[in-house]
Computed example of a mutant assay.
Amino acid sequence: MPHRPLARAVTALAALVATTLAVLLVPGTAQAAAIHYVALGDSYSSGVGAGSYDPNTCLRSSKSYTSLWAQQHAVASYKFPACGGAKTDDVLNEQVGSLDATTTLVTITIGGNDAGFSSILENCRFGSESDCANRVNEAKTFATTVLPGRLDTTYAEIRNRAPNARLIVLGYPRLFETGSCGLLGMSKSKRIILNEAADLLAQVTADRAAAAGATFSDTRSYFAGHGVCASTPWIKDVTGLIEAYHPNADGYRLGYLPALNAVTG
């Protein structure tokens, strides 16, 4: 007669081996799910300021935080329709076509161009204190009255196009340090009100992202101490008109990328 305890042990071992093989061989069981990543948004997502742009008008950079994250995580697919200068309408009309039911991750920075921050920064850099303050106040009003609806519409359409994706909304950093900035730097009062506007934009964006069930990644703490006028800035000043007030390569690598990693794990 067979030894029953031994026979039971052999049977149990065979079952364990079979289960283990099934886990290893069947996709989606214990293996990490494939990541199908789409990077939407404006110049802060396309990587303006980092250099190494592809030959198109969107200034997409291989040094953007989206490209770096995709390389770091060995994604199954990576689509990169983010474009310098994009507003919410551009995302809706030109970028969301890259999304579908297979998309598992979407990131976006958007809203700054809707509020006109590019022209405001130019005005504050070269205009008077009062003109700067007036333009910033106009942008704040827009950010609290008009922008929320535009963000809601954008996030809803992303959800509609990519129902199985996690949506991560990244904010903008404060652009300036408020210490000494040399004779040619922007005045301290201008830098303070511009940073206050950035704080308001971050709060509005975070609120609308939460309402949409998205994850908000606040980048401000990651850039702290590295704004314009810092000893080691990660934000460009007016060194180039197109790249002005955008992160440099270090800003995307050491600021935005860690901020995204913090919420993706």
Rank of each mutant, 00 (worst) to 15 (best):
E177T: 01
C132E: 02
T153N: 14
F216Y: 15
A162E: 04
A115R: 06
K140G: 13
I242W: 12
L184N: 14
A165N: 11
S128F: 08
S98H: 07
T19C: 15
N134P: 01
A18V: 15
V38H: 01
N56A: 04
N137I: 03
A197P: 00
A202T: 10
A86W: 00
G185M: 11
T107W: 09
G179M: 09
G41D: 04
R191Y: 01
A214Y: 03
E129T: 13
S189L: 14
A262S: 15
T66L: 10
V75M: 08
Q203V: 09
S231G: 06
T103C: 08
A259E: 02
L151S: 05
T144W: 03
R159N: 15
L68H: 11
P81D: 10
L184Y: 14
D152C: 02
P27L: 13
K63F: 12
A12N: 10
R150W: 05
C124N: 05
A244W: 00
G116C: 07
G179H: 06
A224D: 04
D54W: 07
N137C: 01
A50W: 03
R4E: 08
A32H: 14
T102N: 14
C58H: 05
R8I: 13
A7D: 11
Y78F: 15
D199L: 09
L24Q: 14
A156L: 10
S46N: 05
P5C: 07
